[in-house]
Nucleic acid binder design. Structure first.
Lengths: 151, 151
DNA sequence: GATGAAACGTAGCAGAC
DNA sequence: GTCTGCTACGTTTCATC
């Protein structure tokens, strides 16, 4: 499937203003409200837009600390095994298998350093995980505060 | 300011369904639509909810590759200097100053490996940046596809 | 302080063009 | 893609606890 320029501008609008009315989006991109709705419906059906979400300040919910943890696994641990080892930890907001020394990179969000320590201990207790290497986030330079799990 | 349990449930609902009507949210949390609206207005005014956004599949927009780049800077480069060095690169979707060896961790999203190479070259051309260490994302285990810049 | 019910204006939606 | 009408939602006002 192909996106034309109008589609991209609609997506850009909805990335900024996810609750904007179709008429508002239409004003910005030069279409009528029903036309925008049709295109948004198509974008959702095609999986370009997978949903809508509130953007929440994690600090306001009491999650003030975040960290990136490199995870080292035994031998040839499959992505599925890594996934099942980390999915149960609610502090994990994102995780990726990556090239390089580490098996995976895990982004966690925690209340404070004590909470981070607990989460790390829990992670290291997983069978597959042999070692971790943690980098605590000192400040966010770019990127919206991502959505947080509820404390 | 303090959030009660109702506030947290409303936030959780809006994180999942950012375009849900107040009545729908109210049904799930046990409030009427006006009551939900008042609380959402307050949550927005207090900065707990900073906005709403579409959740977009970057792959559908042609951004199929992502990577994490550790950035090493000269001496005591301030976060502000790092910020001004990376903000102009549209491939950067997130960036953090972190503890450990590297000065910053930068999350980039690119069309393909060739595009990644170009972005890396551009980054390394920055005055402050002395070295980079890149880990290409092989697969996303956890975490929504984050919002992408328009290609 | 908070909520729920009723009002009005507006947006969403389906059909016809 | 636009225009039209019906339905549902967002929003304010007011009474209530």
């Amino acid at each position: 499937m192909r996106l034309d320029d109008l589609d991209r501008r609609i997506v850009a609008q909805l990335l900024e203003h996810g609750r904007a009315s179709y008429a508002q989006v239409g004003d910005r991109v030069g279409l009528s409200a029903p036309a925008v709705k049709r295109r948004v419906d198509r974008l959702r059906a095609d999986g370009v837009i997978t949903g809508f979400a509130a953007v929440v300040d994690p600090a306001a919910l009491g999650w003030t600390t975040e960290a990136f943890i490199e995870i080292f696994c035994t031998g040839a641990t499959s992505p599925e095994e890594i996934y099942s080892s980390i999915r149960k930890h609610p502090e994990v907001v994102a995780a990726y298998t990556i090239s390089g020394d580490a098996s995976a990179l895990v982004h966690v969000r925690v209340r404070d350093i004590q909470h981070l320590e607990q989460a790390l201990e829990r992670l290291r207790r997983e069978d597959n995980i042999t070692a971790t290497k943690t980098a605590i986030v000192l400040s966010r330079l770019i990127g919206r505060p991502t959505d947080a799990p509820s404390p």
